[in-house]
Design a protein around this nucleic acid. Structure first.
Lengths: 240, 240
DNA sequence: ACCTGAACACCGTTCAAGT
DNA sequence: ACCTGAACACCGTTCAAGT
């Protein structure tokens, strides 16, 4: 097709940059978000990082929403890699450890891309890749003995937890996160008696477990296990 | 203070618009979001709805972030109204129905302001009003027999569920939400076998329970009850 | 077919000026 | 003290033009 076999004449500069492709655009977008977060991911910034004009991007993605959808597809591919494929082994009754392992694998991907949960939440259309992931998670439930009805509830209950993240309300940013000291606690006690008491005790028990510095991984697993156990209890009720 | 008792002279036009106050600004911002969603809430739009120039707003809020923080404060006040105050009755051992009622009350407020969850999630600083709410919820747990340590886990596990919302991944917008018909399901079956089977059955059982039209309230309560029961089970273990 | 420059209609925010 | 107009530095996106 293209004259790729023809050696460039001396006066022809070989193309310094590879031609733009959808894949290159999406990869650069992910890299940009990794370094500067979602705010850094503007069409103009992205173009600059590719050594190109902003308007050139529109030949490979329809618009910014389509770009963000594409980035989510890349993320799901990374989750699939981390899990080792979305295939569902049929007849595996012990669904809980399988699902738990997948959720925590997905979580590792999200921790590599801290901006990803927020991005995923803003999508209004479910990317096809994500549908395939959810289908495989549903498959684990069904093969594990869930009815379609109970599995449906379970899908709702798990929600974003399937992808290894959860709303972390008001996560303190690096700037403002200081562990509470004695003076703060005294001040808190007046208006927030229960929080003050809890922080005083929890912070005392474990220096890494103060308001700004909770163990996110442990807390995520605490909630995950409550959900998984609650689902298993309801599944067992079906069988009896 | 102000010459409020002096009747305006005939040539003095009485002020047509009330003077701008922080409260009026925040109230107008909430109204704007109610009608047009968060995207409609721009400084210029807000000013226009108040019959004023955009720059006048900066005399009452420091910047847009402060404006949004203020809107969240209004929301929490509405939650407090709906609940009937944040006071914690001490010595009420039966914590579960109290907390459940509060969560569902908060949820009613969020359903009146569909944009609110997304807005709350984007706040990086916890508004003081919300801290008071969380303190009262923690109080219910403590008075109900939780240890500080277990209550701490519970706060994390509940997270945004305390406010009556949860991440709803890819909620279909009004435009694209059509319940799956037979043709779609056949097409789905090829690539998404489990989802297709589930939808076929669940949609058959209840016409209001298809992918795009799930019963959000029922699903929220399903998940809420799993969490509450899991927490109660762990609390009971403490006592024994 | 792919990329470009200029332009358009928006943002939040600053600043000097008005009353 | 409160409000204003013009301006600045950004956005995403359209369009006609280049090669």
């Amino acid at each position: 097709m293209s004259p790729v076999a023809i050696a460039p004449a001396p006066d022809e500069q070989p193309p310094v940059r590879a031609p733009l492709t959808r894949e290159r655009v999406l990869r650069a977008a992910t890299a940009l978000a990794d370094t500067g977060g979602i705010p850094a991911l503007t069409m103009r910034n992205l173009a600059q990082s590719l050594g190109v004009e902003a308007m050139s991007l529109y030949h490979h993605v329809a618009n910014k929403e389509a770009l963000l959808d594409g980035v989510v597809e890349m993320l799901v591919a990374e989750v699939e890699d981390e899990i080792g494929g979305f295939t569902v082994e049929s007849g595996v009754a012990d669904w809980m450890p399988v699902m738990r392992g997948r959720v925590l694998a997905a979580r590792r991907v999200m921790l590599r891309h801290r901006w990803a949960p927020t991005l995923i939440e803003t999508r209004t259309n479910m990317p096809a890749a994500l549908l395939r992931y959810f289908d495989s998670m549903l498959g684990i439930l069904i093969e594990g003995g869930f009815s379609n009805d109970l599995a449906h509830h379970a899908m709702h209950a798990m929600g974003s937890r399937f992808l290894g993240f959860d709303q972390e309300l008001f996560k303190p940013n690096a700037a403002g996160s200081e562990s509470p000291n004695a003076a703060m606690l005294v001040d808190l006690a007046a208006h927030l008696p229960y929080l003050a008491a809890m922080l005083a005790e929890v912070a005392h028990d474990d220096p890494d477990t103060t308001l700004g510095w909770c163990n996110d991984q442990a807390e995520f697993e605490f909630m995950l296990d409550i959900l998984l156990e609650g689902l298993e209890r309801r599944r067992a009720r079906l069988a009896s």
